[in-house]
Write a protein that binds this DNA or RNA. Structure first.
Lengths: 225, 225
DNA sequence: GGGTCCGATCAAGATTCGATGAAGACCCAG
DNA sequence: CTGGGTCTTCATCGAATCTTGATCGGACCC
């Protein structure tokens, strides 16, 4: 099961770490500081709920829980386990992937937990790509220290790419990341926004420093130069 | 039950301490000096009313009481227990959270009960944003040292932005911060208050020194100029 | 070498979004 | 109860932005 999910994730460009019991999982999470954790309930050693709690003590990463029964989800929510999404087994891998992608569109919990009266720490660091700094919280982009004025969609496109710097994202994936799932229209739309991003970042079709074209597939983040 | 509530609180970023009987609760309250106490009537050892009274002897924190019956509330109020809010069981956790959040928006009893000239320690420093000083405790705003007369809502909007100076807040987040969770209405309400704040702060749509528009997303605090 | 596919680019219309003013509802103090 | 201040809704305008369609040129395949 884990291998199956891992395969799908890798295919989408994720770097995957596997752990086959709770304590190992927690240790691994602490070590690699992942963006997303897919957590199967019924792990040996520690149960999934406890794993989630422990992870939450040091990480704000997204957590998806795989559960066997639908009604179990309510219980979990009631327990305030703190997962970001729940998927019941059996599931179609494609659906899991879709939800993982969609999840990352949501603001991180640290960014939303605006407890009255307390100044929440800005625990979400900006993404650094060479001379490019992308602040997801403030929605600001700086190139060599100079602010770049991107529109909402342009920023979202760039952010979607920057979130997974090594992966090639298809147009469809980008559309899903920026506009959401229920989309019908022209995939070519992405091209235009990529064009605009490139123009504002000083990229051209020839010199693609940041947004690189992968012909026949999609776009990929470049590390600059 | 306590775990359930604790879970919800933690999810919203609160640090939670649990106590399973009255005396322990009082001792714990004395020790950690909490912002909020959620108090279930029918505790063993001391009844909730007595716990509340004792806590009140040394703390001005907010107290929410969980009661079993509606008509009990009237009795409690009659007893002048001094709780800040009452919630009947069974309750939906979401509602409890909403009321806890809302409660803290109200001025603290210490702040209102300004009886005999005793000034509470100002443990909450004002927020400084360039030439702007925002005093959350006194609910005062100064620009270049001159006081600015903001209304309640205007102040709340500005304060919500100032609490997270680097983040872009959506209209929905602002509404949640200012008005509370269960809101149905026009999000453009925020615009109007932002407009008023800007006017009083000398900002215009063009020169946005303090409250900046992030088109398509929301508003963000500016650092002045 | 020629054809086809794909992506880049441009321009224009459609759409969304935010600022603003005004009017009514509401609340609180006197 | 009355008046002033405040909050909320509503409608409008103008501009920023999105989206589409067409065209162009290069890359890839045969």
């Amino acid at each position: 099961m884990a291998e199956l999910v891992a395969g799908y994730l890798r295919r989408d460009g994720y770097e995957v770490h596997l752990a086959f019991d709770g304590p190992t999982g927690v240790a691994s999470a602490r070590e690699v500081d992942p963006d997303v954790i897919v957590l199967d309930l019924g792990l040996p050693g520690l149960d999934g709920v406890e794993v989630c709690r422990r992870v939450r003590t040091f990480s704000d990463c997204y957590v998806v829980m795989l559960t066997a029964r639908t009604d179990e989800i309510d219980t979990l929510i009631g327990l305030s386990v703190g997962a970001d999404d729940y998927v019941t087994k059996p599931f179609r891998p494609r659906e899991l992937m879709a939800r993982i992608t969609a999840m990352q569109r949501r603001p991180r919990r640290a960014a939303t937990a605006t407890v009255a009266g307390s100044v929440a720490d800005e625990t979400v660091p900006p993404i650094l790509v060479g001379p490019l700094r992308i602040d997801l919280v403030g929605r600001e982009v700086e190139l060599d220290g100079d602010p770049v004025g991107l529109t909402r969609t342009e920023f979202d496109v760039l952010a979607a790419l920057a979130r997974r710097p090594l992966a090639v994202l298809t147009r469809r994936q980008l559309i899903e990341a920026v506009w959401g799932e229920r989309w019908v229209g022209d995939e070519h739309l992405v091209d235009v926004h990529v064009l605009h991003v490139r123009q504002k970042l000083g990229d051209t079709a020839d010199a693609q420093r940041f947004v690189r074209t992968v012909r026949g597939v999609g776009y990929r983040m470049g590390t600059g130069e």
